[in-house]
Amino acid sequence: MVAPVTIAWPHGRSAAVVITVAFEAELAILSVAPDATDRAKSLSVGTYGATRGVPRLLAELARRGTPSTWFVPSALLERYPEQVGAIRDAGHELANCGVALEDFGAVDTAVQLAMVRRAQEAFQHSLGVLPTGFRVGRGEMSPGLPAALEAEGFTWTSSLRGDDRPHFHAAPAGRLVEIPQHHQLDDGPYFAFNLDPPIPPGSPRIAPTGDVLDNWVTEFDAYHAEGLCFVLTLHPELIATPGRIGMLAQFLDHVHNRDVWLATAGEVARFWGEHGPANPPEHPVEVYHRIIGATTP
């Protein structure tokens, strides 16, 4: 079952692959258990991502020259300067996801924009980098945020789930590119775990590592056959254990052995901005926008 390839990806490649990383450290715990500030064991679940996860993940990405895009809450820039410096120096893309994994669903567009701006200033101050992309850390972008981001100079977001290739946002953010992500291609829903406070809340069993590799390979093979844009999301504290990093290496070897365009989210957004077709009126973002249009700020 192979659909006709309709996207002429760069270099004649059949499909695009974007590896994204959510470097959240202790904030991953604090965002769900804000009262854990004095709970050293629980916090150390996140700390591991900074101390062991980031170096191990950077080494794996360097092994085959895999590009990637890192979403870093700006509060971590001063807390972990060595790590974020190493990410930048390795040539990976850095992107904005707010300050400290705030729940964007709980605040309006103005507050969301204020946090995005604060994070941009921190990136420029700490690293001399001005991100061009944004992914919501927790919760949801308000319907009005895309237009505010475009006005702010951003060129892309990665926060929706309605497609398996990039698309544009609806007008008035019609040049802002969205690079959609999917839960099944994110290590969080498979591996995140803390005993107490319980994360996830129902304490489900941790997924078998080999099964997750099989899920990702099955999806990747189909994305490749259909010529789509495969977006993987990784958390250093989850994927960069000594065992799971080997699974990631197996997965990346499989990907590198296919004719895919491995690129950062920013590169894919630039390509789509120049070559991507306009959204058809039935696209979910267009349908949504028509319905709420009258109330969009």
Binding site: E140, P143, L160, R161, P284, V285, Y288, I292
Partner: peptide, 17 residues
């Protein structure tokens, strides 16, 4: 759902793709 474009998009994926 009218404050949750991402949740809407996940549902929209069904008829759209």
């Amino acid at each position: 759902i009218w404050d949750r474009p991402a949740y809407f998009s996940l549902g929209g994926y069904g008829p759209w793709r």
